[in-house]
Design a protein around this nucleic acid. Structure first.
Lengths: 317, 317
DNA sequence: ATTAATTACGTAATCAGTTACGCAAATATA
DNA sequence: TATATTTGCGTAACTGATTACGTAATTAAT
């Protein structure tokens, strides 16, 4: 039961929360120390209004980084204390213009001293620490802005998962999977055609014996992806890349990419110089993948498949 | 209206909260990514129970740094999902022993992968930042543990306030304040006596003309503290420190200390070698102050004041 | 000139935590 | 041994935020 042993930095969220609590905890008492009759949560609103301008609820919310209902509630509390005044915008009847009253301005002035001392206290803590919390937060904000934690975790997952994917040569035991995985997507998007059955029911005779190749992607020993190279002899192309299928279960594990890459390498090792494939533009992820691999659109080849509406080729370096 | 202009680091609380939100935000979706049927807030409890032992609600609360009602609620939710089992402690009927069920252990295993990826993602962010957030949080936790923010702010306030306190020589304009400040505390704790009236009604004749000194503490030009040195000629002491009074309005501004310090310096400048004072032990802050200044308890001097139950002296270096 | 979409913002419900409180069990004290 | 105190923990109420939703005003599109 050693799992969780090194939970480590996943706890960053909890630690942040706790530190936030500890820093926030004292706020109410600090105001009391200065005889300021106000709640800590009002502070950012005072801050945002202190310049003297009128602002709408939504503007305030944007300024202080809260939701608008939150600001709405804060304002109604401050209104009761008489720190703030509301007035409808004449030009736009929806907007609620908020500004500090004289009493509110007075409170702001009282906060001034308190600000100085809190700042000094925070600076003291900063001075006593080697690692700069303030700057570190700034960097995290920036980095998370660029790419959310979720996105980063997804990438890590993909990385780790693709290490678990093994690409192996076809053997008869995989015929079942080769057929099922292909039937799955073909019958989902289109209907099965004669040429499909020929290849899927007898890969040995129809693909391998004619000099083709089939590769299988294993994830935890389960075949979750397949892909074939079918020998062509039209003088222009060496192989057709076909019967590529990846199980929905393997989504986000990079299986398609690994499979296609491996089969291109295979083609190269056979001395092939040009590959061909047929697809349909409604299969966007597939088209994207082919593009990423270097395939270019071509036109004009005859094809036995009615579902084919795009043809591509790859010139091997 | 330039106040708040440089609000600066007071905002550390808000920034921390926002970063916490941003980091926490994605948690639920991350679990979904791994098909784990659980809520982020359960995580610490899984963590705490993962080693397989039974724990009580209170132990868990202490472990994960939450209040016990919070844990209580989380456990009842996990119970519904069947991740956890409760059982009364036989030896102590109050205790509710909690442990993971088989289903709970399975979930823990599923979390394992997710942990690895989240850790990797966090490490990646750390690696991309110059300032170490993790370590910085640790330092802040430590520093706040040692001295809370409130305490630090109080110190800063005192420091700043004491800069605003001016110690000046007595002049007739201050007689009113000299009398009022002393009457205030004496009649609050005791009753005024004859010797009090003599000194307070006529400080010029009773104190100054006899070679004594009176100092006044001004805060924003208002006299909020007074203190006198009364000439003694009993052969042992040079002066009696007396009629020290500080307005409650000036609490926490270090006025008493500054005043006493100044008057001791004054005594030294007059070549005094030993000071004397009388007080009462119910005036704890005063006694503490005298102690801090170096006064030592003595006994046996005759005194005209009935309120006197402690006598002290200070030998000047 | 209608109709549709967007915006401002208030109310209600929800959420993850807290503190307040009370009961019952266990322990300490007289 | 009786009584007082402490401890464990559940329930209830509160808190500071959120999301969801509805309504009215404005703006854009047909």
């Amino acid at each position: 039961m050693n799992f969780f042993e090194q939970t480590g930095k996943v706890a960053i969220g909890s630690r942040l929360r706790m530190l936030t609590d500890k820093v926030t905890e004292d706020a109410a008492q600090i105001y009391k120390l200065y005889n300021i009759d106000m709640q800590p949560k009002w502070f950012p609103v005072f801050y945002a209004l202190a310049k003297g301008e009128e602002k709408t609820i939504t503007e305030l919310a944007k300024n202080i980084g809260h939701s608008h209902p939150s600001v709405s509630k804060i304002i109604s509390e401050m209104l009761k204390k008489g720190y703030v005044r509301e007035s409808k915008d004449k030009a736009d009847g929806r907007r609620n213009m908020v500004s500090l009253t004289k009493k509110g301005v007075e409170i702001s002035k009282e906060i001034e001293d308190q600000l100085i001392d809190v700042n000094a206290a925070v600076e003291e803590i900063s001075a006593q620490s080697q690692n700069k919390l303030w700057e570190a937060i700034g960097e995290w904000e920036f980095l998370l802005e660029q790419k959310t934690l979720l996105r980063r975790v997804m990438e890590k997952k993909k990385e780790r998962d693709s290490l678990k994917v093994q690409i192996v040569d076809y053997k008869p035991a995989y015929q079942e999977a080769f057929r099922a995985l292909n039937v799955e997507w073909i019958s989902h998007y289109f209907t099965m055609e004669d040429s499909d059955y020929k290849a899927l029911d007898n890969p040995q005779g129809y693909i391998l014996d004619k000099g083709g190749v089939i590769l299988v992607a294993l994830y935890e020993n389960e075949p979750l992806g397949v892909c074939a190279l079918i020998k062509m002899d039209d003088g222009e192309y060496d192989f057709e890349l076909a019967k590529m299928a990846v199980s929905p279960k393997a989504q986000g594990k990079n299986v398609g990419f690994l499979l296609a890459n491996a089969i291109i390498e295979k083609a190269k090792s056979f001395g092939a110089s040009k590959l061909y494939l047929e697809s349909n533009t409604i299969l966007k992820p597939a088209i994207n993948l082919y593009h990423k691999l270097g395939f270019q659109k071509v036109a004009g080849k005859p094809t036995p498949y009615t579902r084919c509406n795009i043809q591509m080729e790859l010139v091997l370096g």
